[in-house]
Amino acid sequence: MAASNWSTPHPSTFILLGIPGLEAAHVWISIPFCSIYILSVVGNCLLLAVIKTEPSLHEPMYLFLAMLAFTDLVICTTTVPKTLCIFWFRDQAIHIDACLTQVFLIHAVSTMESGYMVAMAFDRYVAICNPLRHSDILTHQAIAKIGFGVVVRGAVLLGPHPFLLKQLPYCTTNIVSHTYCEFMALVKLACADTAAMSAYSLAVACFVGGVDLVLIVLSYILILRAVFSLPSKEARSKSLSTCSSHICVMLMFYFPTAFTYISHRFGHMAPHVHILFANIYLLFPPMMNPIIYGVRTPGIRQRALHILGLKPA
């Protein structure tokens, strides 16, 4: 059925198989997928509502957090609804334009998410290492410029990906062994020399991920050095508590992303294991970010409870 829809090197649709080898369990696998997606949407929408309606949270850290929450919503909504259609209705066909849009949004928005994490690390660095100038350095205008710069970086660096993919000939099949359209999954279907394209994608990923990770690590080295030089034990504990939330979020994002990216290019794991990990790195951080910040940040927690009607004003 899937192959009958493919007749030219430039098909109008691709066929997403879901998770090969686990087709019989698709309905059961859809339960955690759907639950995590609902939690992600509710949690991030609530986080955005809390930050928007609470004037005391209109500070750099929370404004960057709002940008992060929005990117989380985009990432999970780009993939999960189609994945659930595959699991529930065997609706496996996806138009090439929708497929390439998925490729762009997944990779570009993930790059933006990484950029916002760098911005949050920079905010904590200024707040702890140079607190007297924090409001002067991170003005609302500066925050807007940083946010816009992060968006432009992601769009410019990842923008070529869908255009490059659309030029490739797919001479053997249009069947994608995945739950969503992923750059390397499509590159591997092409019957052309894709070495330069793969090298470009790898270079972009290493540049973005490497630079961002180095900046974050450097920021937190300076932060920890400043924290442990504070004379008050209470001040040290408060600063470490604030930073620990950021560190947890960053670890949840960078480790699964790096593992998935490297294994797809150089690893030899079972396809269903790789695909499950590829979904985890897109699903798990959007679900956990609101929980981590909601639990560990009193201002967010109290306002969220008030919005949900669980705490009086």
Rank of each mutant, 00 (worst) to 15 (best):
W6C: 15
T8I: 02
A25T: 04
I29D: 06
I29F: 12
S30A: 15
S35P: 10
L39G: 14
L39S: 12
L48A: 01
V50L: 02
V50D: 01
V50F: 01
K52T: 01
T53S: 14
P60C: 04
M61R: 11
F64R: 05
A66P: 01
M67D: 05
M67I: 00
L68C: 08
T78Q: 09
R90L: 07
D91N: 15
Q92G: 09
A93I: 10
A93M: 14
I96S: 15
F104C: 03
L105C: 07
I106S: 07
H107P: 00
A108I: 01
V109F: 01
S110I: 03
S110D: 01
T111E: 00
G115S: 01
A119N: 06
M120F: 00
R124V: 00
Y125V: 02
A127H: 05
N130E: 03
R133I: 02
R133T: 03
S135G: 11
S135V: 04
S135T: 07
D136G: 11
H140F: 04
Q141F: 13
A142F: 05
G147T: 09
A155F: 01
L158V: 07
P160N: 02
H161C: 13
H161N: 13
F163A: 13
L164D: 14
L164M: 15
P169N: 13
Y170P: 13
N174P: 07
S177D: 13
S177R: 10
C181S: 12
M184P: 05
V187T: 13
V187E: 13
K188S: 12
C191A: 14
A192Q: 11
A192V: 08
T194W: 07
Y200P: 11
L202I: 07
A205P: 10
V208H: 11
V208G: 08
G209S: 06
D212P: 08
L213A: 14
V214S: 07
V217K: 05
L222G: 10
I223C: 12
R225P: 00
A226W: 04
A226M: 04
P231M: 07
K233L: 08
A235E: 12
T242C: 15
C243P: 12
M250E: 02
L251F: 15
L251T: 15
P256K: 04
P256S: 03
P256A: 05
T260G: 04
R265C: 04
A270D: 11
V273M: 07
V273F: 06
I275F: 03
L276A: 08
A278D: 10
N279G: 13
Y281D: 00
F284V: 14
P285N: 05
N289P: 00
Y293N: 11
T297Y: 07
P298R: 04
Q302P: 00
L305H: 06
L308T: 04
